[in-house]
């Protein structure tokens, strides 16, 4: 059973090679660090002072995540998850996949795991990018010191873990939609619609019921007491619904 799942996962992982979702993950993870690095070089005079700041890593973390959590992360998750889910529709390969000797459960969870690992990959890449934001100026410019503050691993890990949790409901719903609808515009359109609605309702006292901007709440410390638990809850419930809809589908390809 485990071996079958592993083989299925490997197969799904191979499918994403050179796909748009992979490029999106790479570009999405590298985009903000590159912009912030360019910005740091633009304000060349403050480079030395900034790198000597005892809170340099917190500054870079805050600046990077501010843009990422507000816009790029929800957008990236909506697009990348929908793209992975749509891979079979676009290539007309559902019928091929469903005639392979694997259970529907294996197929469903192998695909979901690919999305989650890609999300993790994105987080790792983004954090390497933040690290390089602090390191590269010191490597390239002689008079700029290496960051004085030791890299706060635990702080980064905890912060990233929270942001990762806030992405899970978006992954689950986008995955559900991308498996159900042949037209790519449906999952993307619904995802963007909910995101815009969530932005509009951000200041509403019940805004926490819309999970698409939990990453913003996490950044601002809003509804912190409940959004992580709700994220897990939304993820589990939506995944179960997605799974049931998937296995009881009338036509498979």
């Amino acid at each position: 059973m485990t071996l079958t799942f592993l083989n299925s996962f490997q197969s799904e992982w191979m499918k994403r090679t050179r796909s748009a979702a992979v490029w999106l993950t790479l570009a999405g993870g590298a985009f903000l660090p590159v912009i912030i690095l360019l910005q740091r070089f633009y304000f060349f005079d403050t480079l030395s002072k900034d790198n000597s700041d005892p809170k340099i890593w917190e500054q870079l973390y805050g600046r990077s995540w501010q843009f990422m959590a507000t816009f790029l992360l929800p957008m990236g998750v909506i697009l990348a998850t929908s793209l992975i889910g749509q891979l079979e529709y676009r290539n007309n390969t559902w019928k091929q996949l469903h005639t392979t000797p694997q259970s529907l459960t294996t197929i469903f969870f192998a695909k979901l795991l690919v999305i989650l690992i890609m999300l993790l990959q994105f987080f790792i890449l983004f954090n390497i990018g933040i690290y390089l934001e602090g390191l590269i100026p010191a490597l390239l410019v002689k008079r700029v010191p290496f960051p004085a503050e030791p890299f706060p691993f635990m702080k980064y890990l905890l912060g990233n873990g929270k942001f990762l949790l806030t992405c899970l409901p978006v992954v689950a719903l986008q995955y559900l939609l991308s498996l159900q609808y042949r037209n790519f515009l449906v999952p993307v359109g619904v995802g963007l619609g909910i995101y815009i609605f969530a932005i509009m309702a951000a200041r509403w006292k019940y805004g926490f019921i819309i999970p698409y901007i939990y990453s913003v709440y996490s950044l601002n410390g809003q509804f912190e007491e409940r959004i992580y638990l709700w994220s897990v809850g939304y993820f589990l419930v939506t995944t179960i619904i997605g799974y049931l809809l998937f296995i009881y589908k009338e036509e498979r390809g």
Binding site: N7, S8, Q10, S11, M14, K15, T17, R18, S19, L87, R90, N91, N92, T93, K95, Q96, T100, P101, Q102, G253
Partner: peptide, 21 residues
């Protein structure tokens, strides 16, 4: 109609199924 992954090569298409079979 053909059921193949357009962004992969012929060998890659076969290799990912070889994993399953």
């Amino acid at each position: 109609s053909p059921s193949v992954y357009a962004h992969l090569t012929a060998a890659e298409n076969l290799r990912l199924l070889q994993k399953i079979y």
